[in-house]
């Protein structure tokens, strides 16, 4: 059974139909890339999946359970981790504390008033940081990290609840090409080892074709193609959108 099954998802902002009847499914251990030109509706899809935006139409099933319209914190409790296109971390905390904060919430230890938080789940946090190659920077302030490191930290945070579904919105933006490949290889490995379903967006096509099992192409809110790398590369409509003939891409 698929971890995530989405049908007929739709959302408008005023006159802009940001997402228009999108349906797809992701299986455990599978990596699905959501690609498309700027403004295609990728982030809006992510925001609906993790509950940040309420969809106007459609249903979202997580492990067969309807999670449409649940707030982000509930969705997260059901095992969905996410990273943001524009990183969102806690600037007044160290790298390790950022992960600890997520772990405190996951283990339901937030309403504790006495014992210092540094003593909670430090080892677990370090293990997560180790996975993304950030352990050495554990004591640094998150507010001063380089952008690529922030993205890595976000991934560690997103893994803190042992997710069954991982949503990564442009996880490698701001990284050097070698770093991108390494990070996506890590995601690939996690997906395989733990059976995590991964949905990600990415502008670097080499990365996409390198790691994705399947690719979904969005343009102006609609799915225009779906398939593996070979099929997508050969798709005429996709080529039109990406090679930028104004007629099909809507002139972004």
């Amino acid at each position: 059974m698929s971890v995530l099954a989405v049908s007929g998802l739709g959302k408008s902002f005023g006159a802009v139909r940001a997402v228009d009847g999108v349906s797809f499914a992701v299986a455990a251990g599978e990596m699905l890339a959501l690609i498309g030109p700027n403004g295609a509706g990728k982030s809006t899809c992510f925001n609906m999946l993790n509950g940040q935006i309420r969809p106007e139409t459609g249903r979202i099933l997580l492990g067969g359970r309807d999670i449409t319209g649940l707030p982000p914190r509930r969705v997260w409790r059901l095992g969905v981790g996410r990273t943001f296109q524009i990183t969102a971390t806690f600037a007044s905390m160290s790298v390790r504390e950022n992960v600890q904060a997520a772990l405190l919430s996951f283990h339901r230890r937030v309403w504790r008033w006495w014992r210092p938080a540094r003593g909670y789940f430090a080892a677990e946090a370090d293990a997560l940081l180790d996975q993304v190659g950030m352990r050495a920077q554990g004591d640094r302030a998150a507010g001063v990290l380089a952008y690529g490191d922030l993205k890595r930290l976000e991934l560690a945070i997103a893994l803190a609840n042992g997710p069954t579904l991982l949503l990564m919105d442009e996880p490698t933006a701001g990284m050097a090409p070698a770093e991108r490949v390494a990070l996506m290889a890590l995601a690939r490995r996690l997906a395989g080892e733990r059976g995590i379903a991964v949905l990600f967006t990415e502008h670097d096509m080499d990365v996409v074709f390198g790691v994705a099992d399947r690719i979904l192409v969005l343009d102006r809110g609609r799915v225009i193609a779906e398939g593996d790398g070979v099929a997508i590369r050969a798709d005429a409509r996709v080529r039109a959108v990406y090679l930028g003939s104004g007629a099909t891409s809507g002139g972004h």
Binding site: F84, A88, F90, A91, S92, M93, Q100, L104, W111, A117
Partner: peptide, 16 residues
């Protein structure tokens, strides 16, 4: 304590 961290978390990044 953890509560203080959670409080700062809501200030630093409500989204996260």
């Amino acid at each position: 304590a953890p509560f203080g961290y959670a409080l700062r978390a809501t200030r630093d990044s409500p989204l996260r």
